[in-house]
């Protein structure tokens, strides 16, 4: 085994002995010195996860979160030096983590926070200019055939749990009161859009989420609206346009 391999293996195994071949100038036990590396690695990865999943941490408490994140870090260390993308598998890990079985909504809160990270770092795009938008909307006959190009930062999450309310509660002044007002039987859909440089997380109706999901898959406006469950189409379109989430509108049959 190479020196680097035994060093690497011992970094992620809390009970592994100090790797061989290390020494200290004063003959002291190198295990104490090696422990600094082991600690740095796990703490830095847990810190990275804590940055990306603040509401999950708030829901379970810091000590529990750090223990859970350390477990994840040891099992699934990053595969890339770009740490912004570390944590893509964290929600699935949370869903399967036995100690959180009593918090069925926790994995979806993690999914929502991960989508927020994706939206935060997604590519920039200019919203459709108002004049162009007005011109496209004026042609009512062509409206159902319009295909919308949505902003690269836009994300959707449909959950069986009240994920938007849980997230929003942790942004409020009185978290306990906000949590107390949540009906945990509610299913919620989230729309994430970038407003300026910030990511907004909005609760939308299930039908509106289905509609936007179909738009994302390339359906024309009419097709997407008809296929979805009842929802307020003008309000949903207005929301997308106001939040700068529509980058282009192209009538079907024309090149995008």
């Amino acid at each position: 085994m190479s020196a680097e391999l035994s060093f690497a293996n011992a970094l992620l195994s809390p009970d592994a002995p100090c790797p061989p071949g290390l020494r200290a100038w004063n003959g002291s036990d190198p295990a104490k010195r090696f422990a600094i590396y082991r600690n740095n690695v796990v703490v830095s990865l847990v810190d990275a996860l804590a940055d990306s999943f603040p509401v999950v941490q708030a829901l379970v408490g810091e000590a529990f979160f750090r223990a859970m994140a350390a477990e994840f870090a040891r099992r699934s260390p990053p595969r890339s030096p770009v740490l912004a993308w570390y944590g893509a598998g964290f929600a699935d890990f949370v869903a399967e983590f036995p100690p959180t079985a009593g918090l069925p909504y926790l994995a979806d809160v993690a999914r929502l926070e991960w989508l927020r990270v994706e939206a935060w770092h997604a590519a920039d795009a200019d919203p459709l200019p108002l004049a162009e938008m007005a011109a496209q909307l004026a042609d009512e006959a062509a409206l159902p055939t319009q295909r919308l190009t949505l902003h690269p930062a836009l994300r959707l999450l449909r959950s069986a749990h009240p994920v938007v309310s849980l997230w929003a509660a942790h942004q409020s002044e009185n978290v306990a009161a906000a949590l107390g007002a949540i009906d945990f039987a509610d299913a919620e859909a989230a729309l994430l859009v970038r407003e300026g440089l910030e990511v907004a997380i909005l609760r939308i109706a299930p039908g509106a989420a289905e509609f936007i999901d179909r738009l994302l898959r390339g359906a024309a406006l009419g097709e997407a609206a008809q296929a979805a469950a009842p929802f307020d189409l003008p309000a949903t379109l207005g929301l997308l346009l106001r939040s700068g989430a529509v980058v282009a509108m192209t009538p079907s049959g024309r090149a995008a």
């Binding site: 020196a3 680097e4 391999l5 060093f7 690497a8 970094l11 992620l12 071949g21 590396y37 740095n40 690695v41 830095s44 990865l45 990275a48 260390p77 990053p78 595969r79 890339s80 030096p81 740490l83």
Partner: peptide, 17 residues
């Protein structure tokens, strides 16, 4: 320093002989 081994990234600057 090194920071990756076997494709895993350790997010620390690790020593070499």
């Amino acid at each position: 320093a090194w920071s990756s081994h076997g494709g895993a990234f350790f997010n620390d600057l690790l020593p070499a002989p």
